[in-house]
């Protein structure tokens, strides 16, 4: 145990942490239903929530509160949970496969690739929400491949900070391409300008359904590759010796990350840092084993995203802040903390 107080938490009880985090997430979800930027306060929201759950036909005030809770806050809460869990898991996977504690879909350009793909699709005339998910996933896949290629370059892959620099360059390049499209195409600009800063507001239930296939496939992949991925952490020779095929494992991880990041980006826009903070916190709680951290990343990422979304509604009422801004406010200090740790947590 080192002198850092955060590192001295018991690492051998991931189940306990999982239970505690899930309870915390449930509390955050309830809070997300009760608080908002509008005039419907927690008390009225609670009555609206009860009216919704019990199916009661209440008075006009309660009916209004029920509408706010049911049609505005419930969808965004559900999306927050899905997006946060997806990004948390994607971060853990990407960090494991690049063996880099700073690997994060937002920082490395995977989200930027996804955003660019969506911008191109909208500029070419698409606008249906259903088309957006696969397009964002394809863009994320391209971003992943670029990241992995960069991490294989001698000198880049061994140095976590260099990989982040390479990712920053890629993000900058893809971001400026997106800006260029926005500059030339007004219609795209208006549709995408808001989406690019990230938000969970105003999404429809149908948009959520469109995410489920991708997330389901990603979940299946994660279940299959968790064990080989843990072996890979011991080195390629060990993994091969244990009967795993590193190349196949890496390919599957990339596909899973692309599905997760693409789904999250399609519905909420590129949201940075959740994929950095969630695995970082998970390692502090449960140690470096990917099989343990992956499970913890789901509730941590969801808790982080739902919490940031609640804050985004309350800070500038009657307007709302972009969600991406808030996750960056939380995430950037964590990035600095990780870089400043003299010995980066081993992967």
């Amino acid at each position: 145990m080192t002198g850092l107080p955060l590192v001295s938490v018991p690492r051998n009880r991931p189940r306990l942490w999982l239970a505690l985090l899930s309870a915390g997430l449930a509390a955050a979800c309830v809070a997300s239903l009760l608080f908002g930027a509008g005039s419907t306060g927690p008390g009225a929201s609670l009555r609206g929530l009860l009216a919704w759950i019990a199916g009661l036909d209440a008075g006009p005030d309660d009916a209004r509160a029920r509408f706010v809770v049911e049609s505005l806050r419930a969808p965004r809460t559900l999306i927050g949970v899905l997006v946060g869990a997806a990004l948390g898991a994607a971060g853990a996977l990407l960090q494991a496969v690049t063996r880099n504690p700073l690997a994060e879909p937002g920082l490395l350009g995977v989200s930027a690739g996804s955003a660019l793909a969506v911008a191109i699709a909208i500029a070419l005339g698409a606008s249906a929400a259903t088309l957006r998910v696969p397009v964002a996933q394809l863009g994320a896949l391209a971003g992943c491949v670029a990241v992995l290629a960069a991490s294989r370059v001698r000198g880049v892959g061994d140095d976590p900070v260099r990989l982040v620099l390479a990712g920053a360059v890629l993000s900058g390049l893809l971001g400026s391409l997106t800006s260029m499209i926005l500059l030339f195409d007004e219609r795209t600009a208006d549709e995408i300008r808001f989406w690019v800063v990230g938000s969970l507001a105003g999404r429809r239930p149908a948009d959520i359904m469109a995410l489920l296939p991708g997330l389901g496939v990603a979940l299946a992949i994660v279940v299959v590759i968790a064990r080989p991925l843990a072996a890979l952490a011991l080195g390629e020779r060990v993994a091969t010796g244990l009967g795993h095929r590193p190349r196949t494992v890496r390919l599957l991880v990339i596909v899973a990350v692309a599905l997760l990041v693409g789904s999250a980006t399609a519905i909420a826009g590129p949201i940075a840092f959740v994929g950095l903070v969630a695995p970082f916190a998970a390692r502090l709680l449960a140690g470096p084993d990917i099989r343990r951290t992956l499970g913890l990343c789901l509730p941590i990422g969801a808790l982080l995203t739902v919490g940031a979304d609640i804050a985004s509604r309350l800070l500038v009422r009657p307007s709302e802040l972009p969600l991406g801004v808030l996750t960056a406010l939380v995430g950037a200090p964590v990035l600095v903390a990780v870089v400043r740790l003299r010995r980066l947590p081993g992967l």
Binding site: G36, A37, G38, S39, T40, V68, L72, R73, E186, R187, A189, D190, F194, A201, G202, R313, R317, P318, S319, E320
Partner: peptide, 21 residues
């Protein structure tokens, strides 16, 4: 931009609704 929760603030006798592009 108002939060969608505050959409009722724009309720009026008449609503003139525009987009730039």
């Amino acid at each position: 931009p108002l939060s969608l929760e505050n959409l009722d603030r724009i309720d009026s006798d008449w609503l003139f609704l525009a987009t730039l592009n």
